[in-house]
């Protein structure tokens, strides 16, 4: 069954298209990473999928229904971010109790265990939690709700390294026990890439890449070689990223099936894999040379 289907999804916001004819389909119970730079449209997309915002044009369906203001989507999809607000009259304990009433699949035992593990106090107020604690608490709600579509938007904001590790492990263990579609947005791909089955890379409101994680790792190769030999080779080819290293060397990232690689190897140049995080940065860079071009 299709969990998410977007076709030419456009969302206009204050003078620009936050989402611009974005299309993709998500099927099966997978953990998918939603990767992109700040302002690429990750949050906008997730809020539309959660039914909070309406689309300007195009088609968007979650569980084959239009999500905006849809109760069936609302009960089966949860969106967790660090902006979650709760009434100040409720204690943390109250919030968990209320969440349990709203979500049919809620796991009380898991919620309580995580609550104790991260040493929350039942009478604490959500407003007074620190940034990291807030993220941790919201994460508990996201996991325990066991929604068929669970969306985490920058879930690790403010968490320290050990809590982040715990979060990823908790997420994976709960996913193994209860497979469901999990959408994780982050600009820290490197810390969660092992968890992901596939990634959707978006930039300027469009899908740049929708690949399985394994394919992404083999998507590109980096070549390092003497500039005067390598640069002519690259001249007529599709290059993902290119930069000078020192005065004489050039580093370039090209697709794994690019003919440049064979030629480079013949010249004895070193080739190596491009880490997914770097690849995503290269693919969404505004200019080929990145920040260095600004200082030219």
């Amino acid at each position: 069954m299709k969990v998410i289907e977007c076709r030419d999804l456009t969302k206009r916001m204050i003078g620009r298209n936050a989402l611009n004819q974005l299309s993709f389909t998500l099927e099966g119970d997978k953990i998918t990473g939603l990767i992109g730079r700040n302002g690429a449209g990750k949050t906008t997309l997730m809020k539309i999928l959660a039914g909070y915002w309406h689309e300007t044009s195009g088609k968007v369906e979650v569980f084959s229904e239009r999500p905006f203001q849809n109760l069936n989507v609302s009960v089966n999809a949860i969106y967790v971010d660090d902006q979650m607000k709760f009434s100040h009259t409720l204690t943390l304990e109250d919030i968990l109790k209320e969440a349990a009433r709203f979500y049919p699949n809620w796991d009380t035992v898991l919620a309580e265990r995580l609550f104790d593990y991260f040493s929350f106090h039942p009478k604490e107020k959500h407003d007074y939690l620190s940034k990291g604690k807030k993220s941790t608490f919201n994460m508990i709600i996201g996991l325990a709700s066991r929604c068929k579509l669970t969306m985490f938007d920058e879930p690790t904001t403010g968490m320290d390294a050990s809590v982040r590790k715990d979060f990823y492990r908790a997420l994976l263990k709960d996913y193994l026990a209860h497979p469901r579609t999990i959408l994780l947005s982050s600009h820290h791909l490197e810390e969660m890439e092992d968890l992901l089955e596939e990634i959707i890379l978006i930039d300027e409101g469009q899908v740049v890449l929708h690949e399985s994680m394994d394919e992404l790792k083999e998507y590109a190769l980096g070549i390092t070689g003497r500039a005067e030999i390598l640069e002519p080779l690259l001249a007529d080819e599709e290059v993902i990223y290119e930069t000078r290293v020192g005065d004489y060397s050039t580093y370039a990232a090209v697709k794994s099936d690019s003919p440049v690689i064979q030629k480079a190897k013949q010249h004895g140049m070193a080739t190596g894999p491009v880490p997914p995080n770097d690849l995503c940065i290269y693919l969404t860079a505004k200019q080929k040379g990145g920040i260095d071009d600004v200082f030219k």
Binding site: K30, I31, Y168, R169, L172, K173, L176, D194, L195, L196, E197, S212, M213, D214
Partner: peptide, 17 residues
């Protein structure tokens, strides 16, 4: 694949592969 996923905190699809 599920045991491997848990042991190494990786996606079970990767382990299956």
């Amino acid at each position: 694949q599920y045991q491997l996923a848990e042991m190494f905190t990786i996606n079970p699809a990767t382990a299956a592969k």
